[in-house]
Nucleic acid binder design. Structure first.
Length: 554
DNA sequence: AACAGGTGCGCG
DNA sequence: AAAGCGCGCACCTGTT
């Protein structure tokens, strides 16, 4: 059963039952307590809520303790369909001029036109959009796959809101102790230029002394630092750690230590703690579909870049544990399943893919890993050349799959993930830059080849990264539903999804539930593999660790 | 004072 | 000859 929903005014809202094709099945109904109405409908049966966006509608429900199982998120589905239908401007090959930008056919088709301050207007818009989106999915060349993607993306919207509401358990006291140990006491908050923690001040002085400069150098300034290094006879192309590490000079260890600590202080120091951790939880805001490949992004708090040292602060509540699960070597396995390469699929059938590839190409594991990464990322650096050639000879179908995607990108075409997520078309500037000139006298821009190859690397990687994101999203959706659907003879708090990062998920659960959660993770992975890739020899194992502290997972 | 773009580094 | 994919965020620098 589908029910369209529009919130407001206040705690009231509008509901309208829909048939499975999206047409209304009755009149719109006003309810005075929307949350209660949603809870009541969820208790009775399997509802798919049809709403403008979980991002907008769901947090309110969660605050009242109401969860929903399924939804159709017109905002998220709309952005999938817009990406699919986006058409680049006509190539400017003949004239060398970029053709004027023409809105793609689907450009305006899946958007909200009303500001929807009025619930009736929003409900009508939702109902109409939903029907149009269902029809558009049915008209796709691969309707079943796209429908799965739409459902998974919508479920992702639910999971994201639930994870933000639950929060990642975070011990501010441990974090604070860690900072103090590494940086010294927290600098007092005063007006004027911010004070540095003691350890950073100390290092700054030592760095200036080691460089023998009269005026103190600000190590945060690449310009100043490069000048000071040059004055000391050290010439570097940049002040990146990787570059500095190759230099032999007494100041280098000081600089490397400074960089590491300054980064921790700036990105995840006390201010971060004040801003993002409250009530023992870190509550990031996830942006579902925020990356073109379908990976999630985040807004504020740098949720997807928590440094490894801070994992010490992620500690389960008393009587609870963290189940940390990670899809092992996801991208190579995805390539194996995508490409239908028999030999490669056999290599990815179990165990360590890199080791299996190594024995197939007669090299060591590290070489095999470089070859695989080069195949998936488009690298061609000196060391990878030979191993990549071996890889291509031994696994021709896998190599051909990514090379085909690279060629499409270079030629300005788009590529799609296994479930039909489409990469963006090239920009007008790219087309302009790379278009062949009809005028033989006109110099071709020397950057044209580089731009074409860069797009080739992007689409080469897109088919793998986006298909991996498809798999992970379906896995997350399956896990979410397994965790909440589990029968509970004794009332025990439900396990909670608390973190998701590309190929890794953390569930916080009562200790008594840990075995069930681990089993659910494995079941979710198997389900995702079946739904996304059908019958395949490739396995997608998930490693799981049951720990009290995130830092103790692998 | 505010902004844009570059640099650098954290994560996968 | 140059060369790996995708992000978010903080700081610096030059400009308005």
């Amino acid at each position: 059963m589908r029910i369209a929903l529009a919130p407001g005014p206040g705690s009231a809202g509008l509901l309208r039952r829909l048939r499975d094709d999206g047409t209304p099945d009755g009149p719109a109904e006003q309810v005075s307590d929307l949350t209660a109405a949603v809870a009541a409908a969820e208790a009775v049966g399997q509802v798919r809520w049809v709403w403008r966006a979980g991002r907008l509608c769901y947090p309110q429900l969660l605050r009242s303790g109401v969860r929903v199982r399924r939804c159709h998120d017109t905002e998220l589905v709309g952005s999938l369909l817009r990406a699919r239908d986006a058409t680049p401007e006509a190539p400017g090959a003949a004239s060398g001029q970029g053709a004027p930008a023409v809105a793609g056919a689907g450009q305006a088709q899946f958007e909200f036109d009303s500001g929807a301050a009025d619930p009736a207007g929003e409900l009508a818009a939702v109902v109409e959009l939903h029907a149009r989106q269902l029809a558009s999915i049915q008209a796709d060349a691969q309707p079943a796959r796209l429908a799965l993607l739409a459902a998974a993306e919508s479920a992702g919207g639910l999971a994201a809101a639930e994870m933000s509401a639950a929060g990642l358990p975070w011990r501010a006291d441990i974090h604070d102790r860690l900072l103090t140990g590494l940086l010294g006491e927290r600098p007092p908050m005063i007006s004027g230029p911010p004070l540095r923690p003691a350890r950073l001040t100390e290092l700054t002085a030592q760095i200036s002394a080691a460089l023998g400069v009269a005026r103190p150098v600000n190590p945060d300034s690449p310009v100043q630092l490069r000048q000071a290094l040059a004055a000391g006879g050290v010439r570097v192309s940049s002040t990146r750690s990787a570059v500095l590490r190759q230099v032999d000079h007494p100041v280098i260890p000081l600089l490397l230590e400074y960089k590491e600590l300054a980064r921790l202080y700036a990105a995840n120091g006390w201010s971060w703690l004040d801003a993002w951790v409250s009530g023992g939880r870190f509550r990031p805001e996830y942006v579902v579909g925020g990356v073109v490949s379908g990976r999630w992004a985040s807004r504020g708090g740098g949720a997807l870049q928590i440094p490894k040292v801070l994992r010490q602060a992620v500690v389960a509540d008393p009587g609870w544990v963290l189940v940390v699960a990670d899809a092992a070597q996801l991208e190579p396995r995805v390539l194996a399943a995508l490409a239908g390469d028999r030999s490669f699929a056999r290599a990815a059938a179990e165990g360590d893919v890199y080791a299996a590839v190594a024995s197939a190409i007669g090299g060591d594991r590290a070489t095999a890993k470089v070859a695989l990464l080069s195949a998936m990322y488009g690298g061609s650096g000196g060391d990878s050349r030979q191993s990549l050639a071996l890889f291509r000879r031994r696994f021709p179908d896998a190599a051909a799959y990514v090379e085909h995607a690279a060629r499409a990108g270079q030629e300005g075409r788009v590529v799609r993930s296994v479930l039909g997520r489409t990469c963006p078309p090239p920009s007008a500037a790219w087309r302009e830059l790379t278009s062949d000139s009809a005028d033989p006298d006109q110099e071709r821009d020397p950057g044209a080849g580089a731009a074409a190859r860069a797009r080739g690397r992007f689409t080469r990687n897109f088919v793998v990264q986006a298909s991996a994101a498809d798999w992970a999203l379906v896995m997350l959706a399956a896990l979410r539903s397994l965790l909440t659907a589990a029968p509970r003879s004794v009332p025990v708090p439900l396990p909670e999804l608390v973190f998701f990062l590309h190929d890794e998920v953390i569930v916080h659960c009562p200790t008594s539930q840990q075995d069930r959660v681990v089993a659910a993770v494995q079941a979710a992975a198997a389900e995702a593999t079946r739904l996304v890739f059908g019958a395949t020899e490739v396995s997608f194992p998930m490693t799981t660790a049951v720990v009290g502290c995130y830092a103790d997972a692998k």
